[in-house]
């Protein structure tokens, strides 16, 4: 309990730093936000352009797909906001030996990594996600009841944890292969494609995004529970939570193992 308190206090100190830097670099923040807005906007524009040519995509309407798309942004944005420093571990900190500093402090290494940086650009994803979800609510295509409201938030948190687990796992590979940035990048980009209904893919592809790198459980599957009555919450959001916990545990174990065989630099 004492440690939890201490870590919370520490996080407050880091957060205070973050807000100070945010005020200092308003222009950068704004540009990052615009960048993310545009990226998402092109994704939506893509759907519009496609639906000019077709009425439905394998039983899904444009509105439903936009909801899935928006819903997918929220856990992604949350993870992006809080754990962005993991990217730097993958690309630079391990290979350059700068990871040394985490090893030297009497604090949990993983928490040091994620405390150190918050990524304000992520607000771009979060805002787009929230706008699209709210817009979908006003269109009346989203099912709303007490259970679904609770599960909505549960699903978002579990989704964010899955993102973090995937990032942590691939970033940890850098303890073995020195620079795992490109691998992480590729794995992370898979998430872009799990925004669409998984039925469109061949079986082995579906297998990969469902079980290997389980992004299907971050976006499409839980989102379907909120738009289709017949979807079972246990097999979507229940499994999502299970995956989140299991994958995070595995990723954390690999990370922990990695720190044990960390080689620093200069040899």
């Amino acid at each position: 309990m004492r440690t939890v308190k201490r870590y919370l206090r520490l996080y407050r100190v880091f957060l205070a730093q973050f807000f100070k830097s945010l005020v200092q670099s308003k222009a950068d923040f704004f540009l990052g936000l615009v960048g993310f807005f545009l990226t998402q906007a092109t994704g939506i524009a893509f759907l519009y352009l496609v639906f000019r040519q077709i009425p439905m995509l394998q039983g899904w309407t444009l509105d439903q797909l936009i909801f899935i798309y928006g819903f997918a942004q929220i856990p992604r944005g949350i993870d992006h906001l809080f754990t962005d420093n993991i990217w730097i571990v993958a690309y630079r900190l391990v290979v350059s030996g700068q990871f040394d500093r985490y090893m030297l402090r009497p604090m949990n290494i993983f928490l040091q990594v994620i405390f150190e940086r918050l990524q304000p650009d992520a607000l771009g994803e979060l805002i787009v996600g929230i706008i699209l979800v709210v817009a979908s609510l006003t269109k009346g295509i989203v099912l709303v009841d007490a259970v679904r409201i609770v599960l909505f938030f549960v699903s978002i948190l579990a989704g964010a944890l899955i993102y973090t687990a995937v990032k942590l796992f691939f970033a940890s590979l850098s303890f073995w292969i020195k620079r795992s940035g490109p691998v992480l990048q590729t794995a992370y980009e898979l998430a872009n494609f799990a925004k669409y209904p998984t039925e469109i893919y061949a079986r082995f592809v579906r297998f990969i995004i469902t079980y290997v790198i389980p992004f299907a459980f971050v976006a499409y599957l839980p989102a379907s529970y909120f738009v289709k009555k017949e979807v079972n919450p246990v097999s979507t959001i229940g499994v999502e939570c299970l995956i989140a916990v299991v994958f995070f545990a595995i990723a954390y174990l690999v990370f922990h193992r990695g720190t044990k065989r960390y080689e620093s630099a200069g040899n």
């Binding site: 201490r6 206090r9 520490l10 100190v13 880091f14 730093q17 830097s21 030996g97 700068q98 040394d100 500093r101 030297l104 402090r105 009497p106 604090m107 150190e116």
Partner: peptide
């Protein structure tokens, strides 16, 4: 190589270290 936070003033780094080392 420095162990300090590159972008922070020294005083802030010390505040953080104070918490880390309790």
């Amino acid at each position: 190589r420095t162990q300090l936070w590159w972008d922070l003033p020294l005083s802030e780094s010390f505040t953080i270290l104070k918490e880390i080392y309790d």
